[in-house]
């Protein structure tokens, strides 16, 4: 138990530190790399909660696919300090306020969940079988709706890409 606790603190430390480094590092490529470290620390937390399936999917989808695309775009754009557009104080203020409101919402939603603590060693919340059962029995409708949402986003992306090409051909 002692070991698990220490591991939890270590992973949390890594996650928070690298999340801070995402914001503070000057080079956008370094930011993305720090974000990947953050994702790995969070995957470690999933494993501590006995949810190996979630951890694997988290690494495959977020660290393995989405962040590669991020890195891809940033490398192609070759962003550096000179090309970064100057942001006005108003935009900075608006960003700070909206991010602060998001923080309040997060804290509010997490509050009260202390009573719902689960003992990860006793229940297999994150195994493939339990995940499947919960998703396809209790949460079938939200699950299907979110898959439709992803499909809509995908079709939207295809449409955006297509329109541009047709416009070029027309002109």
């Amino acid at each position: 138990m002692e070991f698990t606790n220490n591991l939890f603190y270590f992973l949390s430390f890594v996650a928070v530190l690298s999340a801070l480094m995402v914001v503070f590092s000057k080079n956008p490529v370094h930011s993305v790399l720090y974000l990947i470290i953050t994702f790995f620390a969070i995957a470690g937390h999933y494993i501590l909660l006995n949810a190996q399936f979630l951890a694997a999917v988290h690494v495959i989808v977020y660290a393995g696919a989405i962040m590669v695309l991020f890195l891809y775009v940033i490398m192609l754009l070759n962003l550096n300090q000179e090309t970064e557009p100057h942001k006005s104080t108003l935009i900075k203020l608006a960003a700070a306020i909206s991010a602060g409101l998001l923080l309040v919402v997060f804290v509010g939603s997490i509050r009260g969940s202390e009573q719902m603590m689960v003992q990860p060693q006793q229940v297999e919340v994150g195994s493939v079988k339990d995940m499947g059962r919960v998703l396809f029995k209790e949460f079938l409708l939200p699950f299907e709706i979110s898959s439709v949402l992803l499909l809509v986003a995908m079709i939207g992306a295809v449409m955006l890409g297509k329109n541009e090409e047709e416009g070029k051909n027309a002109s």
């Binding site: 399936f53 694997a56 999917v57 690494v59 495959i60 660290a63 393995g64 696919a65 590669v68």
Partner: peptide, 9 residues
Amino acid sequence: LYVFGVVSI
């Protein structure tokens, strides 16, 4: 899935 995860890294 572990194999896929490692390969994607």
